[in-house]
Write a protein that binds this DNA or RNA. Structure first.
Lengths: 235, 235
DNA sequence: CGAGGGTTTGAAGTGCATCAAATAGTGTGG
DNA sequence: CCACACTATTTGATGCACTTCAAACCCTCG
């Protein structure tokens, strides 16, 4: 079961059997309800996680009690592995925001695998490289896109690939309040921004499900000022 | 000469001689004037750079002609290495913003070294991990700090370590316009923000040199809402 | 059905951007 | 060494996007 999940993931796919075995033998699959805190910023941590299903919020807590969202990630993503290069601490917290099934693996397995198996080190580099690109885009988005445009970008990235088909219906994967925070705005701004996006692109909003009659209109409105060329690809 | 520069850098220090030799034999030291474009976004690139002296701006160009600053980096930093995991392209451009001495190394050297030398892969991971932390903090800063606070944070990180000494005079490493962009604000906002910071912390501004009578005041004003604990360390 | 959180809406405030113009600073050629 | 040209920076006035505060609405779940 666990092995099956692992080999479907880019990071573990097509590894030689002994290496894969090292991970799978120590991995545990677990279900976690909404609200569960998995990592606590600056606290020692000796495991990392692979998301099988669900959504996880990564965030930083500040001295005055507020929080800054770093990312909200779902299946195929790994998190907590940064502790490896940070004295077994993570510089952020992680919380379940939608019921999730996670694979938890002792980080020392990853540590020795990186040292002993060049292929693992290489894959780790690819993971980090992808993350870097993701964060670069996020910074750019905050810099140059306004609220409705960031929302449009968010919606487009939720659309199943290939994007070509018209009339896509999707439903928001987690609370609007959290989407707002993820996009660096307040819940009220998100609400109003979505309304403005509707004016421009004829999307239809019913609670948490959204119907997009024309992706091209969203693209014209959202991507015109971006450095990425549509489609943005998997990030 | 080149070897001496390399071994002073965290990434190349204490490597075994043959490995170091592979890099140094193919490395070239060059001086580049302000304004020189070193990397162009989405253009094939087969070298990466180590900054010896000077400052380099990494940025993304958007379809409508504006640009978003990803980072502005100086000595000991590496850039362009991301092409390795991106089909020999970089997803950003790089420009010299202060006269710089750079070491340029063919990226295939790095590529084979990563594959053949576990130690190199490991160091690469550390570099990327550090970069990740840097970007996470940047995102947080944009989220929760206002303009004067981001300026304060920027100034504090310019201060020589250890920070304890009072009455530090430093001078801004590059144009105020660029610092503004780096901090995600306009030049006018930077100017006014610096003035506001002065009200709160008694810093003294003379052109591009700034005297800080009390680091504690800046810290109180700037770091109170941050997730990092002062001092922020080397990032 | 009712409590409590998520979401929307309205009104008012704030911070930053924009536009415009003045000032300071820098490098150039004479 | 000076005057000019050009850029960087500052300052002022105004506008807009987003936030804040407050209240209503809605939805879900016990």
């Amino acid at each position: 079961m666990i092995t099956e999940i692992l080999i479907k993931n880019r990071f573990f796919k097509d590894l030689d059997t002994p290496t894969l075995e090292k991970f799978s033998s120590q991995a545990r699959l677990m279900s976690q309800p909404k609200g569960m805190l998995l990592l606590s910023q600056d606290t020692p941590c000796d495991s990392f996680y692979l998301i099988h299903t669900g959504w996880i919020k990564l965030f930083k807590q500040t001295l005055d009690g507020s929080e800054a969202i770093i990312d909200v990630i779902n299946d195929t993503h790994i998190f907590g592995e940064t502790a490896l290069f940070n004295d077994h601490h993570n510089s952020f917290s992680a919380e379940v925001v939608e019921p999730s099934e996670l694979i938890i693996i002792p980080i020392h397995i990853l540590e020795t695998a990186i040292h002993d198996t060049p292929e693992i080190a290489l894959r780790m580099l690819k993971v980090m490289s992808k993350h870097r690109k993701r964060q670069d885009i996020e910074l750019e988005n905050r810099d140059i896109k306004n609220a409705p445009q960031r929302i449009g970008c968010f919606l487009m990235r939720l659309c199943p690939y290939p994007y070509e088909k018209d009339r896509i219906t999707l439903h928001l994967p987690y609370d609007k309040t959290l989407i707002a925070a993820r996009l660096g705005m307040k819940a009220e701004t998100f609400s109003r921004g979505l309304a403005k996006l509707k004016e421009h692109t004829d999307i239809c909003i019913k609670g948490s499900s959204i119907t997009i009659p024309s992706l091209r209109k969203i693209k014209d409105y959202t991507c015109a000022i971006c450095s990425m060329t549509y489609p943005c690809g998997d990030l």
